[in-house]
Structure formats: C-alpha cells, structure tokens
Amino acid sequence: MGSVRTNRYSIVSSEEDGMKLATMAVANGFGNGKSKVHTRQQCRSRFVKKDGHCNVQFINVGEKGQRYLADIFTTCVDIRWRWMLVIFCLAFVLSWLFFGCVFWLIALLHGDLDTDYKDDDDKSKVSKACVSEVNSFTAAFLFSIETQTTIGYGFRCVTDECPIAVFMVVFQSIVGCIIDAFIIGAVMAKMAKPKKRNETLVFSHNAVIAMRDGKLCLMWRVGNLRKSHLVEAHVRAQLLKSRITSEGEYIPLDQIDINVGFDSGIDRIFLVSPITIVHEIDEDSPLYDLSKQDIDNADFEIVVILEGMVEATAMTTQCRSSYLANEILWGHRYEPVLFEEKHYYKVDYSRFHKTYEVPNTPLCSARDLAEKKYILSNANSFCYENEVALTSKEEEEDSENGVPESTSTDSPPGIDLHNQASVPLEPRPLRRESEIGSRR
C-alpha cells in the first residue's frame, strides 16, 4: 500500500517518465508532432483561472445545437444578457408577425380586404367582416399587437362572423401568456443567479507553507467582502497533476483530494472575517514527500473551492481559484488583518494578500521532518523571529508614515537576534492585533 500511495502522490514527473511517455506515443502511432509532453521546463496551462473560470474549450460535440435547444431554459439562463435581450425582442416580434399574417390571411380569404370602410357607412358590411377595420397587412399586424398586449384601442375587434378568427384570438392570448411567463422566468432566474456573489468572495493571491502546531501546513486565505453571511460555508481543495499509471496509461489531469478537515468538520467555516484555511501535510497528503526545492521545480495546480448558500436567496454559490506551484510561498505567513478595537473588531483588507517571511522554516519535506531528519529550532526562537518579522513590518510602515526611528523597538546594537533566540524570552503579545485562523 505504501508503494502504491507514493506512486499515486508523486508530484514532480521525472525525466524517465517523460521519455517513457514519448516512447509510448511513438510506439502507439501518436508521434505526429502534435502531442505535447509536459516536462519541468514546460509548465501546463492553468486549468482553473484565478477568477474561477475553467480554462476549457469543448470541440467536436455531436448534436450540440439539439442538446442546447432541448434544455432551452438553461440555455437562456446561461447566455449573455445581450443575447437574452435579442431573444426577448424576437420572441414578441415574431409572435406578433405570425398572428398578424394569420389574421391577414383570414381577412384575405373572407374577402374583407376588398371592402373600403372609410367611404361605406353600411354597418351590415362591417358585421360581415371577420375582424372589423382590418383591410391590410398593417392593420392585421396592429390588431395582433393589440390582442397579445391587451391594449385594446377599440377600432379593431373580432366579430362572430368567422369562428376561426375567434379561435385565433383565444389562441394568441394563451401563447402570449406562455411567452411572458417564459421570458420573465428566465430573466428573473438569470438575475437571481448567485454567480455575481463570487465577486465579493476573495482568495489570497498566494498560498503559503509554514509551520503550525509543530507541523508543516499548506495555507491559503479566504474572505467575504459583504456583511451578509454565506450560510453553510465549506471549503474543498484538489491537486491536479499528470501521472502515468503502473500499466503505462497517461492521465493528463489526475485529481487528488486535499484534506482540509472534512473528517473532523473544520472544513465548515464561519466566514465573517478572513480565515486562513489549513491543510496539514501528513502522510496522507500529496505534498508529504515534497521539499522546498521540489515545490520550486514541480508542475501541478491546486484548485480551491468555497461553497455556501447566499443568505438573501438561499441559492448555492461556488467560488473557485487555483494556485500553481510557483504561487506557493515556502516559509511565509499571512499578515494579520483582524484588529481588536474598543467595542468592535476591524478588518483591514489592505493586508489581505500580504505575507511575511518566517525565518528558520524547515526546507525539507514533511516526511523528513516526521522522521527527525531535520532538527527544528527552539520553539522560543521560532516565536521570537516570528515577532521580529512582524515588528520589522510595523517599523517599515512607521518610517513610511514619517514616525521617528527613535520610537521604534530596535534591538541594541551589536546583538545578533538569531543568537539571542536560544535565550528564554518573556511572551510578547501583539500590541493591538490578533489573527483569527482556522485551528486544527
């Protein structure tokens, strides 16, 4: 089982795998120059863009038009607004034209077009017409509009002379109601789609790998820009990579689940303020055997998904993003964004995407760390350097704002901070800030 798991979770494809794949392509008759073999020097295209759209195009789909027309309502909801407006206008105009032609044909076959009612006051002739005051196609078209929109100006009306005319008036009224219901329903469904809710759900630009509770963890940050909550919010993550099976089958995008606390339930989050999602790199993680150097040379993509129900409509929305291997910062942490004021908490989104480097973060893999092949620094050293990194950030910001350097908390000259780390230190809580992250 261990060997199978290692093969499945191998992220960085070796040169031997690339040569094996190329040999397979030639042997199977696919070596026509169009096949692409992804190596370390040639990274694959992003499968999920940063804005959440999937970078996929469908080609050679059989009976595409028929399949889309069979699900016309979903098609109308998914198309762009400009095409929705075109369909909206065409549906009414074509129905008016169709029934206008029908009423014109009825008048033509009944002989109503030969009668001039402007110079004739004989009401008996008017009563013999199928539709009064309809003696041309324009008049028939206007009567069709008046019937379907129930305008009723009063000059044109159907008589009991022709039952077919009466039937067409009733039929057009029913068709008009159906068109109204369909168009209004599609427009309302399109307006109520929770897709735009994703514009106020954000992911951090970069993911980070750092120590948390004595273990290497992959972390990324999510935030909600609205005050309205995302009900039943939960997160998922998958690692996408290519691999070759033991039988020699090439899988271009193998999807591997990344555990973010599904078993323990901590994948469900209360997204009021930005939260750091934590994936513990343990023996079940696809990143277990990867060191910093392996991450730098790897070719994979981590897709992160945030799902929840919109509070206003109770409709489920899904926000997506992805991180390539070069977008994962090893040995970094996110800057705090949640600050405790006197009577409330304040979230500073200008710090949302910012990170700071944490010294002495192990550069080895989580496996080597678990097997004690890498000796961690003293816990006080880690905490102290973590505090120094934050303090230096604040000093830089104070210097930019014009604060005198004498007010900063610099260490005395001639003292090495790293050498001082081995000395037991008193706890130094942050002056006014605390970061709330997901705790395992």
Score class of each variant (00 low, 15 high):
V4I: 12
N7R: 14
Y9L: 13
Y9E: 15
Y9A: 15
I11R: 03
V12H: 12
E15F: 04
G18R: 07
A25D: 06
N28V: 05
F30H: 15
G31C: 07
N32S: 13
G33Y: 06
H38R: 09
R40P: 07
Q42V: 10
Q42E: 15
C43D: 14
R44H: 12
S45H: 14
S45M: 06
R46I: 00
R46A: 02
F47A: 12
F47M: 13
K49M: 06
V56K: 03
V56D: 03
Q57D: 15
Q57W: 05
N60L: 04
V61L: 09
G62P: 14
E63P: 12
E63S: 15
E63K: 15
E63V: 06
R67C: 10
Y68E: 11
Y68I: 14
A70Y: 04
A70L: 05
D71E: 14
T74D: 09
T74V: 07
T74K: 07
W81K: 07
R82T: 06
R82L: 08
W83H: 08
W83V: 03
V86L: 15
L90M: 10
V93F: 06
V93D: 01
S95M: 15
S95F: 06
S95Y: 02
G100T: 01
W104T: 11
L105Q: 02
A107K: 00
A107P: 01
L108C: 07
G111T: 05
G111S: 06
T115L: 05
T115P: 03
T115C: 04
D120K: 00
D121F: 15
D121M: 15
S124V: 14
S124A: 08
S127Q: 09
A129G: 09
S132C: 02
S132G: 06
E133R: 03
F137C: 03
F141S: 04
F141C: 04
L142D: 02
S144N: 00
T149Q: 12
T149D: 06
I151K: 08
Y153A: 06
F155I: 11
V158Y: 02
D160H: 02
I164Y: 08
I164A: 08
V166E: 06
F167R: 00
V169G: 01
V169E: 02
V169N: 02
Q172D: 01
S173A: 15
I174M: 04
I174N: 03
I184Q: 04
A186W: 11
V187K: 02
K190H: 11
K190Q: 09
A192Q: 09
L201T: 10
N206A: 08
V208F: 01
V208Y: 01
I209N: 00
I209S: 01
M211Y: 09
L216C: 00
L218S: 00
M219K: 01
W220G: 03
R221I: 00
R221G: 01
V222K: 00
V222T: 02
G223Q: 09
L225F: 15
L225T: 14
H229S: 11
L230M: 06
A233E: 03
H234M: 10
H234S: 12
H234L: 03
R236A: 09
L240E: 00
L240I: 11
T245E: 09
E249P: 08
E249S: 08
L253W: 12
L253S: 13
D254Y: 04
I256M: 10
I258P: 01
N259P: 09
G261S: 08
G261P: 02
F262R: 07
D263V: 10
I266M: 12
S273W: 06
T276Y: 08
I281S: 01
D282K: 10
D282T: 12
P286A: 03
P286H: 01
L287E: 00
Y288D: 00
Y288M: 01
Q293S: 14
D296H: 10
D296C: 05
N297V: 09
N297Q: 11
A298L: 11
D299P: 09
E301I: 00
E301R: 00
I305M: 07
L306G: 05
E307Y: 07
G308V: 11
M309C: 14
A312F: 04
R320Y: 09
S322N: 00
L324Y: 09
L329E: 06
R333F: 15
F339Q: 15
E341D: 04
E341T: 08
K342T: 06
Y345M: 09
V347E: 06
D348Y: 00
S350H: 06
H353Q: 06
T355W: 01
T355R: 02
V358F: 03
V358A: 13
V358G: 00
P359Q: 14
N360E: 15
T361M: 15
L363F: 12
L363T: 03
S365M: 01
D368Y: 05
D368F: 04
L369A: 02
A370T: 08
K373W: 03
I375N: 11
A379S: 15
C383Q: 14
C383D: 15
V388T: 15
V388N: 15
A389L: 14
L390T: 15
S392R: 11
K393E: 09
E395W: 03
E396M: 07
N401G: 08
N401Y: 06
V403D: 12
V403E: 14
V403L: 11
P404E: 10
T407M: 08
D410Q: 09
I415R: 06
D416G: 08
Q420C: 08
V423T: 12
P424T: 06
R428Q: 11
R428M: 14
R431L: 14
E433G: 11
